[in-house]
């Protein structure tokens, strides 16, 4: 909530659906979620040793193959991309004025609307442009 110029919306005025996700604000609950994920991973990993999987590819039946692949592939991609960025990232106006990156989306195509707790029901469709 660093941006104070924006209209403050208190958590209470959110829709019920949104309220269900407020836990992501809490560090504890997030940590809990991570633990759950870790636990799930552990269970899945263990299952590999229990269940006989049908496989075609070599090494596919190696226990933990998918787990390891998932983890390493993801890490490789993310880290590789980070390196890639060092090579190819350019300022946003690099291709300007012939690219949309450097310009704002034209307002007439938008319907900017602030969240208003009182009227959760949307105004009619088509009130846009």
């Amino acid at each position: 909530m660093k941006n104070d110029s924006q209209k403050q919306v208190s958590d209470d005025s959110l829709t019920p659906l949104a309220k269900r996700f407020l836990w992501v604000e809490s560090a504890d609950k997030v940590r809990l979620a991570i633990y759950i994920l870790a636990g799930l991973c552990a269970v899945l990993f263990i299952l590999d040793f229990v269940v006989h999987r049908h496989a075609y590819a070599p090494n596919e039946n190696t226990p933990g193959f998918y787990a390891l692949t998932g983890f390493l592939a993801f890490s490789f991609i993310v880290l590789g991309a980070g390196l890639l960025r060092k090579l190819i990232a350019k300022p946003e106006d690099y291709y300007a004025p012939n690219a949309v990156d450097a310009e704002d989306y034209p307002e007439e195509g938008l319907n900017r609307e602030e969240f208003a707790p009182d009227e959760i029901v949307e105004n009619k469709p088509g009130s846009g442009s």
Binding site: L37, C41, A67, G70, F71
Partner: peptide, 9 residues
């Protein structure tokens, strides 16, 4: 397995 470990990563 694939997805969860990726998430873990």
């Amino acid at each position: 397995q694939l997805l969860c470990f990726a998430l873990l990563a």
